[in-house]
């Protein structure tokens, strides 16, 4: 939610911009002289600031790693959803079901009863039909790949 800044807030922002400008416009010599005048060691100040930057690199690296892990997890979940069932497993499953449900078997054509001439697509279709008829529980496609 964006809120309008108060006049005092804007006033501080302008002063801040002016101070930043002054620092940016200082020569290297002026900058060094000011650091020394503050009683600080330029080398130590530089190292401390560099350390902050290196911590930022680490922070960003960790964030990128976490994002990559999340992305991999997400991709894995997506992949598992689009896995195609294994045709051989489906054929074995159909055969097993038909043995368990002889009344269903009797309703099939001779070719189908013998499992002859059935394409993979026919097998999947029959399993889906049996599922719809309530003969078998919903097909777990992932299980078919195991």
């Amino acid at each position: 939610m964006t809120r309008k800044k108060s006049n005092d807030h804007l006033a501080l922002d302008r002063l801040a911009a002016s101070l930043v400008d002054d620092i940016l416009n200082m020569t290297d010599e002026e900058m060094l002289a000011e650091v020394v005048a503050d009683g600080e060691d330029p080398k130590r100040i530089a190292q401390e600031t560099k350390d902050i930057f290196e911590r930022a690199i680490t922070t960003c690296g960790k964030a990128r790693l976490a994002a990559a892990r999340k992305s991999i997890r997400s991709d894995r979940q997506k992949d598992s959803r689009v896995l195609q069932p294994n045709p051989n497993a489906a054929r074995q499953k159909l055969e097993k079901i038909l043995k368990q449900h002889p009344e269903t078997l009797s309703k099939l054509t001779l070719a189908a009863r013998n499992g002859e001439g059935l394409s993979d697509s026919d097998v999947f279709s029959m399993l889906e039909d049996l599922e719809e008829l309530g003969v078998i529980p919903p097909i777990e496609k992932q299980d078919d790949n195991e």
Partner: peptide
């Protein structure tokens, strides 16, 4: 960055932390 460069960045940060 040179030492002065790092000092300049630090100076900006300190200056803003005053406000």
């Amino acid at each position: 960055l040179s030492d002065v460069g790092w000092a300049r960045l630090r100076k900006i940060a300190c200056s803003l932390a005053h406000l």
